[in-house]
Structures are given as C-alpha cells and as structure tokens.
Design a protein around this nucleic acid. Structure first.
Length: 235
DNA sequence: CCCTGATTCGC
DNA sequence: GCGAATCAGG
C-alpha cells in the first residue's frame, strides 16, 4: 500500500481526531501502526502525548518557569554598558492597583499592605520594575491574577443526527427488542433492527431465522473448507 | 504482557 | 520516503 493523497488526508483527519496510531492503521488498512506513526511524523503532524515523553514533563516546566526571569534581561556578562543595567534596574515605577482586583496568593507579596476590612476604596501602591521589552515585571512571589472560570452553561441533550433519528441506537436496546445490527459500528447510520424480539431470543423472528439455522442431518452437511493455515491458535 | 508514541536506521 | 525494529512509559 502506498500513501495516496486520499489516504494521507484520512490519516491527517484521524490523527487530528486523536485516534490512536493502531486505530488509524486498522481503518486505513494495509499499513502498520509504525507506518502510520512514521508517516505522521514525516508529515509534521502534531506530536501527541507519548507515554515515553510524558515523564519529562516534570522537570521541564519548572525549569522553564524559572529560566525566563533570568533570560528576560540581558545576561550581565553580555552587557558591557553598566549604565544601561542601572537604568533598567532603576526604572521601577509605581503601579496603582484597585483593591477590587483579585488578591495575590496569600503567602505572596508582603509589599501589598493589607487593607482594612470594609474599606473598599483603599488602593495599594505596588512597585513594579519595567523590563527591557517594556513589560511590567511581576514582583517576587506574585502570581498572575487567576483566570475567572467560564460561567456554567446549561447542558442540552444533543440531537441525534437526522440519519439515525428514527433508528434504534445502542442505548435503546433491551431484552424485548431485536438487537440485530444493521450496518457497521462506527458508520453514521449504524443501528439495530429494533423490531419486537422473539421471546427468549435476542432477535426478532426474521433475524432469528438468519441467526439460528436448523441443524441438517449429518449426511446433508457440507464439510467446512480447510483453513489456509493451521487453524485458530489454542493457548 | 498488553497498550501507547518516538526514534532510529537500513532499504 | 518508507516502515520494521526498538525503546520506554502507562
């Protein structure tokens, strides 16, 4: 099997959907899981959380969080103009923060003088230094204001797609209706027969007729064709 | 052992 | 470019 444009598109789509490489390989057919992964990488598709790489997440973010503070300003050894450094360091400016702004973490920012309870008009002076790029630095221990959670939304039951609106879905099955599958799982119109089941059987009368064949006398049976290999493996 | 994705490397 | 072999975590 070769990677035709059509197959590549399907690979991209399923990869984007988050399907596993094996699932994609199964669906495409003719390729291995490895082939799918290899192709995805060659295409430059987003890498996915890998069980192997996940272990590295622990040290990296912590280091990344600490590093920018040091890297944001020019390394001292690289700045020959000491006056420039002084200018940067002395460019701290007062910033007026409304009291109503979300408070910093409790343990943080001793500089923020506690306002008296009930005094909602009190503002607090916080000195902030301005970084080389013009951004306002956070003070040590300060935390970015928490992002307010999105307002809760009312959940509405999803409407079934029109194709299966009047079809019997998996969730509607019980022991009185026919569970004969029509179509194939995963296809948009996959559903079950839904007729009244033959009592004591999982299928309706018609499908029982398909599922259960009367046993023929031995002489009338055709021997099954020989299997192309040694037969199913027995463990 | 099964699964997963990442990487390597001979073709 | 391809993918089997291999690695390594869950």
């Amino acid at each position: 099997m070769s990677w035709t444009d059509e197959r590549i598109d399907r690979l991209k789509a399923m990869w984007a959907e988050g399907k596993t490489a094996s699932a994609i390989a199964d669906e495409l057919g003719g390729v291995s899981r490895n082939a799918v992964i290899g192709k995805a990488h060659r295409l430059g598709l987003d890498s996915r959380p890998s069980p192997v790489k996940a272990g590295e997440d622990k040290a990296a973010p912590a280091a990344a969080a600490a590093a920018p503070a040091a890297e944001a300003r020019p390394a001292p050894s690289k700045v020959k103009d000491k006056a420039a450094i002084t200018a940067i360091l002395e460019s701290a400016v007062p910033v007026v923060e409304p009291k109503s702004a979300p408070a910093p973490a409790p343990s943080a920012a001793p500089a923020a003088a506690p306002a008296k309870p009930g005094d909602s008009t009190t503002t607090t002076l916080v000195y902030r230094s301005i970084g080389p790029g013009g951004f306002v630095r956070q003070g040590p221990g300060e935390q970015q204001a928490p992002i307010p959670p999105a307002p809760p939304r009312r959940l509405v039951p999803a409407k079934p797609s029109p194709e299966i609106a009047d079809k019997t879905s998996l969730l509607e099955l019980n022991d009185r209706i026919c569970k004969w599958p029509l179509g194939h799982p995963g296809e948009p119109d996959f559903h079950f027969c839904g007729q009244q089941a033959n009592p004591g059987y999982p299928y309706c009368v018609q499908h029982c007729g398909v599922a259960y064949q009367a046993q023929l006398p031995r002489r009338d049976r055709r021997p099954p064709p020989p299997l192309p290999y040694g037969g199913p493996r027995v463990r």
